[in-house]
Design a protein around this nucleic acid. Structure first.
Lengths: 147, 147
DNA sequence: AACATATAGTTGTTTATGCAACTATACAAA
DNA sequence: TTTGTATAGTTGCATAAACAACTATATGTT
């Protein structure tokens, strides 16, 4: 039984994801120190828009693994900060397409630099083979549970 | 440079911790289906109290990797649900010691069963060697960044 | 066309986080 | 004893998540 592999403390740590909390906090701190005024959650939406602009909120839900109300409010706040704008779709009047403002676009390079630096801080002392395996495990966990 | 190990999508996934989000959601869902009415965050506090009752809020902060306001409010809500109670420390009148109620104690077995089951769902198809390495990596990340 | 159903997005409520400011108690040094 | 400082906990505010209920538009069936 897999059960036996998990002593209490380890199980707890695995579930509550202290490592990803730690990464998120450090990234937020590093953004702040670099004078970048976005939350990690807002950044994750921007991240998907940098890959492809003009996605619908529904597409952003799928990409960011968030539900619709969360995306509604993240887009609200990103609009308040003048980083994105909603444009009603012409094909389907139910749907909004989200575009980056000029300011939203310029944020990409600055934040990716900080994100890379943060990840290097996080992974100091971990070798490449270990990283590959960790990514595989996290991917399988995600595939097992998402939807 | 470590930088090169991370293509965009992978970096994003690693940082935003979709896997731990997925585990937390599934665990919450499984609690609900089992008729267990606690949040994952509340559960994480209870988890530490099952290991040792009578910890101060400060100790719970350290154990759960949460800040003081978070613990204040989690304990508030656990008290409302009659799962724990605050007892003023006699040695140090600044500090509260947190004790489990009878109902709080009885929750341990039920929730640990569900948590074990959830972890098995999550880790289906992952072998023990991979799990060990993933845990090591997450531990190193945490050690690199915490505090 | 009319109706049922599915999809896209919004809003309200509860719970939680992060940060700053605050109160109360403890402790250490003058 | 007084004064300064550290520690334990609380409160206020902004942001976000989960869930349910809602509106509006699209689509498929008869």
């Amino acid at each position: 039984m897999l059960n036996n592999q998990f002593k209490r403390g380890e199980l707890y740590s695995f579930i509550t994801g202290k490592a990803s909390t730690a990464i998120a906090r450090r990234l937020q701190k590093n953004f702040k120190e670099a004078g970048i005024d976005v939350t990690i959650e807002q950044w994750s939406v921007l991240y998907h828009l940098w890959k492809q602009e003009g996605q619908s909120q529904q597409q952003l839900c799928e990409g960011t693994f968030r539900d619709k109300p969360s995306i509604t409010r993240l887009v609200d706040n990103l609009e308040k900060s003048k980083l994105v704008k909603r444009v009603a779709s012409k094909n389907d009047r139910r749907s909004n397409l989200i575009f980056l403002t000029k300011e939203g676009k310029t944020l990409e390079q600055k934040t990716m630099e900080v994100a890379n630096r943060t990840l290097n801080e996080a992974l100091e002392g971990v070798n490449n083979g270990q990283i590959e395996i960790a990514k595989e495990v996290l991917q399988i966990v995600y595939d097992n549970l998402a939807r």
